[in-house]
């Protein structure tokens, strides 16, 4: 039990840098498309780590299932809204930033 709990903690700690770097990317990256990359990928992996960590720590299957459901929902939602934003940006003729 102790091992499970501690590896859960490790997973949560692993997830935190993803969130922070997602925000750094959102601030630092040069255009809307690259920012979308940062936002969707980093945050989803971060949330995945935290969800898995909490699932390892929780004693009940019900909580684990609900956590996984939340993650799945966030995954679907963020990839769909990411695609929507990118598509609208393309349709509005917003040119992607390229290396000078």
């Amino acid at each position: 039990m102790e091992i499970l709990y501690n590896s859960g903690t490790l997973l949560i700690i692993l997830g935190l840098p993803f969130f922070l770097s997602g925000t750094v990317g959102l601030i630092r990256f040069p255009d809307i498309y690259t920012r979308l990359h940062a936002l969707t990928k980093a945050d989803n992996v971060g949330l995945g780590c935290i969800v898995c960590g909490l699932a390892l720590q929780s004693a009940s299957w019900a909580v684990t299932a609900k956590l996984l459901l939340i993650w799945l929902l966030v995954l679907i939602a963020s990839s769909a809204s990411c695609h929507l934003i990118a598509r609208s940006a393309m349709q509005k003729n917003i040119q992607p930033w390229t290396r000078p």
Binding site: T23, R35, L39, G46, L47, V74
Partner: peptide, 11 residues
Amino acid sequence: MTAQLFGTCGV
């Protein structure tokens, strides 16, 4: 997109 960030981080 910040709202989306609020979504995932908030969760």
